[in-house]
């Protein structure tokens, strides 16, 4: 392989890293306010993408998707926000605060439940998902040379993801809701004393994270072109790895780590082949844990 091939691999990977970043942000947001893990997060995100397919099928007929791709992204985001709220209610709301194992296990249960509902609705078959620019430009490719080209649809997805991230940051740093969220994340008791409803803040954080997840789910569907329950576990794992490398609770960290993992993963693939690619991703994580356990931008956690 020549240099340009590596450049190509990194470019493709970084653009696809955008959805690792979105999923990583979701994990990190929830961890930030609740100090707990939501293992059903990626599953709920794909649940949104499946729901958007369902809605499109209701509206459309035959071969056509009933909705233009961008509306499907929106439908997926709304549905996933709703699912995230349901996951919050059945897994977090009533399980004990101080015993995180119960919550962890409940989210595993929710993962199984969402996965199985998707399987039952589709018989587990791969579902055709429209490309983001379908109907506008067919299979756009921006070709710079024979050896280097950028997928137009992936670039669109990448830009959409960046916009979503910017909106999220605005929401967190420029609105009251964001202030409340950050307050609960920093000092829950103090926030409560200031009259912030922790429960409502938690629920809204889940919904925000869910909406981002729904976008990511639809983006993955659009980037691959197919949705399958096979995606739930690997995207959960990659999302978690991104969260840790970025630093727990750090949104900029999750963004950078998502792009980093996406890009490096493709380099590992080019260098070592598919069977070893993920082993090197794991090694990268181990390196971070050994030498920079607080992640890229995380603060040192003394006690939790």
């Amino acid at each position: 392989m020549e240099f340009v091939d590596y450049l190509q691999a990194v470019t493709d990977g970084v653009m696809q890293g955008a959805y690792y970043a979105l999923i990583g942000i979701g994990f990190t947001l929830i961890f930030g306010v609740m100090n707990k893990i939501n293992l059903a997060y990626a599953a709920a995100a794909f649940g949104g993408a499946y729901a958007s397919l369902g809605i499109a099928a209701l509206i459309g007929s035959g071969d056509d998707f009933g909705l233009p791709p961008l509306l499907m992204f929106l439908a997926s985001a709304v549905a996933a926000g709703l699912f995230a709220w349901i996951v919050y209610t059945i897994c977090f709301r009533f399980t004990p605060d101080h015993y995180e194992l119960a919550t962890l296990m409940a989210t595993v249960g929710a993962f199984f439940l969402i996965e199985e509902i998707a399987v039952h609705a589709t018989d587990g078959e791969p579902m055709d998902f429209p490309e983001v620019l379908q109907g506008i430009i067919e299979d756009p490719m921006i070709e710079f040379s024979d050896a280097f080209a950028i997928r137009g649809d992936l670039l669109t997805i990448f830009l959409l993801a960046l916009i979503a991230m910017a909106v999220l940051l605005l929401l967190l740093y420029r609105t009251k809701l964001g202030l409340a969220t950050r307050a609960v994340a920093q000092q829950r008791t103090a926030a409560q004393l200031c009259g912030i409803s922790v429960d409502r803040t938690n629920a809204s954080t889940f919904i925000i994270a869910g909406v981002l997840g729904g976008l990511a789910g639809a983006m993955i569907g659009a980037a691959v072109g197919v949705l399958s329950p096979l995606l739930f576990v690997p995207l959960t794992v990659k999302g978690l790895i991104v969260t840790v490398i970025g630093g727990l609770g750090s949104i900029p960290g999750a963004i950078v780590a998502g792009l980093l993992v996406g890009g490096l993963e493709n380099v590992f693939l080019a260098l070592r082949g598919i069977t070893e690619r993920d082993m090197y991703v794991m090694l990268l994580l181990f390196l971070f844990l050994a030498f920079r356990p607080q992640g890229l931008f995380g603060k040192k956690v003394l006690r939790d």
Partner: peptide, 21 residues
Amino acid sequence: RIRGLMLVVATIAFGEFVRLF
């Protein structure tokens, strides 16, 4: 050195590493 979510992720990664081995 790590606990909570970090340990969950680290051990998932380790388990997967062994599987891939």
